[in-house]
Simulated assay, not measured.
Amino acid sequence: MTTLFALLIAATAMVGNTVAALWEARGSRLAKYGRPVWLQPWFLAGLLADVVAWVLTVVALRYLPVFAVQSILAGAIALTTLADHDWNPWNLIRRDRWAVGAVLAGLVVVAASAAPDRPDALPPVATPVLLVSFVVILAAAPFVWRAGRPMLLALLAGLGFGGTALAVRAIHPGPLRWETAGNLLLDPLVYGVVAMGVLGVLAFARALQDGAVGPATAVLSVTEVVVPGLVGIALLGDRIRPGWEGAALAGVLVALGGVVALTRPDPESVRRRVH
Results as ranks from 00 to 15, higher is better:
172 H>N: 12
62 R>E: 09
90 W>F: 13
212 A>V: 14
6 A>V: 02
208 L>M: 08
216 A>T: 09
259 V>Q: 03
271 R>D: 15
179 E>W: 12
184 L>E: 05
263 T>W: 01
163 G>N: 02
21 A>H: 12
104 L>I: 13
201 V>F: 15
26 R>F: 06
172 H>T: 15
142 P>S: 08
166 L>M: 09
47 L>I: 07
16 G>C: 04
177 R>Y: 14
158 G>T: 00
160 G>S: 05
41 P>D: 10
153 L>C: 02
52 V>R: 05
137 I>S: 04
98 W>C: 13
162 G>Q: 06
30 L>G: 05
176 L>I: 13
31 A>G: 01
201 V>A: 13
186 L>H: 15
71 S>T: 06
200 G>Q: 02
227 V>P: 01
116 P>Q: 00
57 T>V: 13
33 Y>P: 04
93 I>A: 15
151 M>F: 07
188 P>F: 01
101 G>H: 02
54 W>P: 08
54 W>R: 13
59 V>K: 14
171 I>Y: 02
143 F>G: 08
55 V>Y: 10
31 A>N: 01
25 A>P: 12
115 A>F: 11
185 L>H: 12
31 A>Y: 09
42 W>S: 14
60 A>T: 01
259 V>S: 03
103 V>I: 15
96 D>P: 06
35 R>K: 14
132 V>E: 00
32 K>W: 11
91 N>F: 10
24 E>H: 13
110 V>L: 04
247 A>H: 07
144 V>D: 01
118 R>V: 09
144 V>A: 08
169 R>M: 00
172 H>Y: 06
194 V>E: 02
17 N>F: 14
267 P>M: 07
50 D>A: 12
86 D>Y: 15
88 N>G: 04
258 G>P: 08
117 D>F: 15
55 V>H: 08
261 A>S: 08
154 A>H: 05
231 V>C: 03
242 P>Y: 15
46 G>F: 15
58 V>K: 12
31 A>I: 11
164 T>V: 02
207 A>Q: 06
179 E>A: 11
72 I>S: 02
231 V>A: 12
261 A>M: 11
136 V>L: 14
45 A>Q: 07
181 A>C: 10
151 M>G: 06
125 V>A: 15
36 P>W: 10
112 A>K: 11
229 G>H: 01
33 Y>T: 12
13 A>G: 07
120 D>G: 15
240 I>D: 06
192 G>H: 08
160 G>P: 05
248 A>L: 09
192 G>N: 03
168 V>Y: 03
6 A>H: 03
140 A>P: 12
144 V>F: 06
80 T>M: 03
19 V>W: 10
123 P>H: 00
127 T>P: 08
231 V>Y: 01
232 G>D: 01
